[in-house]
Computed example of a mutant assay.
Amino acid sequence: MVRLPLTAREIEQGKNLGALLREARGERTILDVAIQAGLSPETLRKIETGRVATPAFSTIAAVAAVLGLSLDAIWSALDETKESNRPESPILSH
């Protein structure tokens, strides 16, 4: 199966997701969180650095559960970032 290239928006959201998870992890090690979430530490490292911009839903759900984050909170944070990066529409700026 051929995977389509990621859009700039998907890449940006991946970076924002990674930053959010990294911040929520705090002082905990990648190894600790990854093992509890059932992932390899390398997979979590790639998500946190934005190298995996579109991780599977189940992966994010597992990490969120370990970090005590709700999926709604993650979605809201990513949605806010998307809104703040959206250029102002000339139609709506009048």
Score class of each variant (00 low, 15 high):
N16D: 12
G14S: 11
Q36M: 08
Q13M: 15
R9M: 13
R45T: 04
G18E: 11
A19K: 06
R51V: 06
L17Y: 06
E27K: 11
N16I: 04
R51A: 15
R9H: 12
R25N: 01
A34D: 09
A24R: 05
R9Y: 07
S58I: 14
L44N: 03
K15G: 11
R28S: 12
G14F: 06
S40N: 04
L17M: 10
L39G: 00
T43M: 08
F57N: 09
A53E: 08
K15L: 15
A53K: 05
D32A: 14
R51E: 13
E27P: 02
L20Q: 08
T49I: 10
L39H: 03
L39C: 09
K46P: 05
S40C: 07
I47P: 05
R45V: 01
S58V: 11
G26I: 06
A24E: 11
V33T: 15
L17W: 04
L39I: 00
K46Q: 11
L17N: 04
G50E: 09
S40T: 12
D32I: 02
I30W: 00
E23D: 15
A56S: 10
L39K: 02
T29I: 00
G50W: 03
R9N: 12
G26H: 08
E27T: 14
N16E: 15
G50N: 12
G18I: 03
E42F: 08
R9P: 01
T29H: 00
R25L: 03
E48S: 03
L21C: 04
E27W: 02
Q36N: 11
G50C: 14
L20N: 08
R28K: 14
I35Y: 11
E42I: 11
R9L: 10
L20H: 11
E27L: 10
E42H: 07
G14K: 07
N16K: 13
L44C: 01
E42T: 09
S40E: 12
R28I: 01
T59M: 04
L44G: 00
V52I: 15
R51I: 05
K15C: 14
P41I: 05
R51Y: 06
L21N: 07
T59Q: 00
Q36F: 02
I35D: 03
D32M: 01
I11T: 14
T43A: 13
A53V: 09
G50H: 07
R51M: 12
T59E: 03
R28G: 05
E48Q: 12
E42G: 08
S58N: 08
I30Q: 00
Q36C: 09
L39M: 12
R22T: 06
A19C: 08
R28L: 06
V33P: 13
P55G: 06
E10S: 13
T59H: 02
E10Y: 07
